[in-house]
């Protein structure tokens, strides 16, 4: 809550079990309102989280709600981009990060008290993807018990972090490091594979733009200066654009010349995926990820975890 805002009256704060019911209702009835309902969902989920914060409660209900809220945000990321509807990616990610941080704190706390939350590994995996280039997150996961490290999703997240590591990545505040892989080919093939579940795929889609940019940057650097333009259809399948229009939009954005139905990669002059004083390139999605979503239902995705109740000792954060 904003510092200036008055604290809510105790009577206005919903108790934990009511918050769970509220979220149940959202999951069962309101997810289908997407993409139009995004703003409303965003607001309702934030207020659920706030109510837990107001009463300083971090018991199983809070874990359950935060976990499902994270999944909903992940779902929204893909659905919004797919539908091309207006939404604030930055605000969506902000709430997602906040929920993940809340969860990490609670998981730590439960562990310090001798317990373990049943879905922890899944959300540690999302955390690894949330700050995908911050080495601190690798350390955190190495300091957790081995069963977390061994978890399939955590292993996948660690793979993706290595695959996208890149010694040519340039962004303010980021320190480049040695011998990084920049395995963009592997990024695309692994992301398409069925081993990567929808929610994780949806999160990884947010990195498509930068992965493509650094793939082109690296390719461009490896080409002879007289190399002829790469045919668009070749580049399209290489960088996994759904359509040629998307590729052309990408090339236009980074001022890559298109000559005779080919992209002259040598014409790339930008060093960073972020162009100063320019709106970011619009987000991308992959058809293969959409296919994963079509194979399931929203509520199955969101209610996919193990129940938190019964398995966590009653812990309240100080």
């Amino acid at each position: 809550p904003a510092a200036a805002a008055a604290p809510p009256l105790p009577s206005d704060v919903r108790p934990p079990h009511v918050l769970v019911k509220t979220l149940d209702y959202i999951v069962d009835n309101l997810l289908t309102s997407l993409p139009e309902g995004e703003r409303f969902l965003w607001d309702r989920m934030r207020s659920i989280r706030q109510d837990f914060t107001y009463q300083n409660y971090s018991g199983p209900e809070c874990v359950d709600c935060n976990e499902r809220i994270v999944r909903i945000h992940l779902l929204i990321l893909h659905v919004m981009v797919k539908s091309k509807a207006e939404f604030s990616l930055q605000q969506e990610l902000e709430q997602l990060h906040k929920s993940l941080i809340t969860l990490s704190e609670i998981y730590d706390d439960v562990r310090a008290n001798g317990g373990e939350c049943p879905n922890e590994a899944e959300f540690r995996a999302y955390s690894l993807l949330s700050k995908i280039r911050d080495p601190q997150y690798d350390r955190t996961v190495l300091s957790l018990p081995p069963n977390i490290l061994q978890n399939d999703l955590v292993q996948l997240a660690l793979c993706f972090r290595r695959i996208i590591s890149n010694s040519n990545y340039i962004e303010r505040g980021y320190v480049r490091t040695e011998n990084s892989l920049n395995f963009y080919e592997r990024f695309f093939s692994l992301l398409q594979s069925k081993e990567v579940p929808f929610l994780m795929s949806s999160f990884l889609e947010t990195y498509l733009g930068e992965i493509r940019f650094y793939a082109v940057k690296a390719l461009s650097h490896s080409l002879n200066k007289k190399h002829k333009p790469i045919p668009l259809d070749n580049l399209q399948s290489r960088l996994l654009f759904n359509t040629q229009e998307e590729l052309v939009e990408f090339c236009d954005y980074y001022s890559i010349l298109i000559v005779d139905n080919g992209a002259d990669l040598k014409s790339l002059i930008h060093h960073s995926h972020k162009l100063p004083e320019t709106q970011p390139l619009s987000q991308s999605y992959l058809q293969s990820v959409e296919d994963k979503l079509q194979a399931t239902t929203y509520s199955n995705l969101i209610n996919s975890g193990k129940p938190n109740f019964d398995s966590i000792p009653d812990v309240q954060m100080a």
Partner: peptide, 14 residues
């Protein structure tokens, strides 16, 4: 999960 023999070009590019 990270390495695959098909990524020849990518290895050379890197």
């Amino acid at each position: 999960g990270i390495h695959n023999y098909k990524n020849v070009e990518n290895v050379l590019v890197t």
